[in-house]
Design a protein around this nucleic acid. Structure first.
Lengths: 182, 182
DNA sequence: CCACGATACGGAGACAGTCTCCGGTTAGCA
DNA sequence: TGCTAACCGGAGACTGTCTCCGTATCGTGG
């Protein structure tokens, strides 16, 4: 990759992260290009689909997911607290900007999605938490971890789209947790 | 309202219901106008916002909601079965077309939404089921019915957007039900 | 150091969807 | 039947998506 291309690529991603946060995932791509000081053609060559841009924007996000799961697993306290704490973190993690929870959660099952690798990181993080609790015999039989991602993702999605504040989200996550725990 | 206006109104609603079902809630409104044999101006005069059209489309839907809740309440069997059956029906009811679950669920808390009255019908239906179970002492303390709508709506939303089939939805609803029941 | 080919740029513009405005038409009453 | 308020419809302004291709730039091999 040529040096000028790399420069533009990085700049676009940086600007996109900012604009997505300001205006949500529906933001105009041409405006992102403009703000990044490049033509639309340049943006679309690097990122043929909107989701490719999202994927690039989420690159740095992977580290935060791994940190969060590590922290969750060292939690001292009841299983319920651990699970609930992780769910809250999960919601926070996927709520990078307006529209993100829906996008991420619906890509969760799709192997062809451009953001697949990011979803896998998240799914694996969630797996570790659930399996950790399952070893304690704390999880009901027949629970699949992908379901858990979808359930919590669903809560994050409605919170995002109805812009609820975190105080309204917590009790919903508690219901999900209670439904999973023995 | 003049007779020709009424005729156009009805025709637009009828066509919109069809097109939304075919193409989802993102369908082109100009195309709906065209198919209904009217100009865009006519459509936008009757329905200034897309949601106004949705509201009209859902008019006939109200009856089905009321029938469904009546049927659910007469259910013979365990509380869990009753609740789960209602949830499945709830999901089916709000999945009128692609995009509908998200739209309806996010409007659930907004008193200014054009589809507010429809949401109220749904919320009240859900209330009746939950309160019925609460009288039996079957529901955990601290559960609010609006949360229930959002949770089940969230499941429907992820199912819609990730187009999962009903077999994948059922276990998620079961988790929610278990989280609500004592 | 420079010339040249591969690589990348960027903006004009085609296309699609939203929504408005207003000249022309029509319903329905007197 | 004639009049007026109500209504129609489509041209077109505007915004966002995405492509194409002439032009510019990078970086390498001589």
């Amino acid at each position: 990759m040529r040096a000028d291309a790399r420069r533009n690529y990085d700049r676009i991603v940086e600007v996109a992260r900012e604009v997505f946060r300001e205006q949500g995932y529906d933001a105009s791509l041409d405006e992102i290009a403009k703000r990044a000081g490049v033509g639309p053609g340049t943006l679309y060559r690097h990122f043929p689909k909107r989701e490719n841009l999202l994927d690039a924007v989420m690159q740095s996000w992977v580290d935060r997911v791994n940190e969060a799961v590590a922290k969750a697993l060292t939690h001292e306290g009841s299983d319920r607290e651990l699970l609930l704490g992780w769910f809250e973190e999960y919601v926070r993690l996927i709520s990078v900007h307006r529209g993100a929870p829906a996008k991420i959660t619906s890509a969760m099952g799709d192997p062809d999605s451009p953001i697949m690798t990011k979803c896998q990181v998240l799914a694996r993080a969630n797996d570790r938490v659930i399996e950790h609790l399952r070893e304690d015999g704390a999880i009901r039989d027949g629970v699949e971890t992908l379901q858990v991602c979808r359930l919590v993702g669903g809560v994050a999605t409605v919170a995002d789209q109805g812009d609820l504040d975190p105080d309204a989200v917590r009790p919903m996550l508690a219901v999900v947790a209670d439904g999973l725990l023995r």
